[in-house]
Nucleic acid binder design. Structure first.
Lengths: 140, 140
DNA sequence: ACACGAATTGGAATAATTCTTGATATCAGC
DNA sequence: GCTGATATCAAGAATTATTCCAATTCGTGT
């Protein structure tokens, strides 16, 4: 399906295919919601939000879409302890600061020139594929 | 109950009370297992292991004990993505390297003098209570 | 020994996520 | 524009880790 502007009411273009993944209407919409709501929503948040524009999508489809987007490196899945997974369209290397008093999650970047792997006492021969940094605390 | 040596066959002493937590037989045993099996076992791992010495303990009790130990800062709970929680008696500040080829989890310490919070672009006023670092990859 | 609060048990309940199956939609080639 | 092959979707059932609950047992202080 071609993304007519009337069907893509967002302020950024969504291509029909990204990284070899067919961008169906549902996936477009899930991605658009993630780009608009930068609050690291859960699958259920996305589900409730998507019903406004595509009332027929099921929660299972939201999960499918999110997984497809994650698998293709278009978004990231973020886990805090055992809480429901959250999703994040920020692909830059970054961590997450979880403000416990408000529940808000802030993206946290490294200061320029910092390479975490250099600062760690890694087991010899370790090849890092992915780094996850989570901070918990509050804003004074 | 006094820890008679016949009832505490480990090579380290377990006090009757730690950090205000009554160390019941079950909690002692859970803690002992964690100290012996440094593989970051799951609650279920501990459950299967504890049946060898205390066959009557329930899985719920294992969860209770683990939670009590975590709450009192005696052990740490470690989460990898959505996998079952793992538990770790290493209280030093450290991260975890998950070797995907073997499934083994290695503790990773910072090189001396490194303070992670200094290297991050934190939101102003952020007070860090806890840091979690997870690395995924393989050993070449 | 007694009473009271804490801990334990076992099973039921919960919640996020995944799986299954049948229905639909989409694509490539003719 | 058709047709078969493939990918996606919807709905609900199933799974899994974990928590909750009610009843019993245990430990500690008196």
């Amino acid at each position: 399906m071609v993304s007519h502007s009337s069907e893509n009411p967002s302020d950024f273009p969504i291509p029909e295919e990204i990284a070899g993944l067919r961008m169906t209407r549902q996936r477009q919409e899930v991605y658009r919601i993630l780009m608009q709501e930068r609050n690291h929503p859960t699958a259920n948040d996305v589900f409730m939000r998507i019903r406004e524009t595509l009332p027929s999508v099921s929660l299972a489809t939201v999960y499918n879409c999110l997984e497809a987007l994650v698998q293709h490196g278009i978004i990231r899945q973020v886990n805090f302890d055992r809480e429901p997974s959250r999703y994040c369209p920020n692909l830059d290397e970054h961590g997450h600061f979880h403000d416990e008093s408000t529940g808000v999650i802030h993206d946290v970047r490294f200061k320029p020139g910092v390479n975490l792997a250099d600062l760690l006492d890694l087991p010899p021969g370790a090849v890092i594929k992915d780094i996850e940094i989570t901070l918990r605390g509050a804003l004074a």
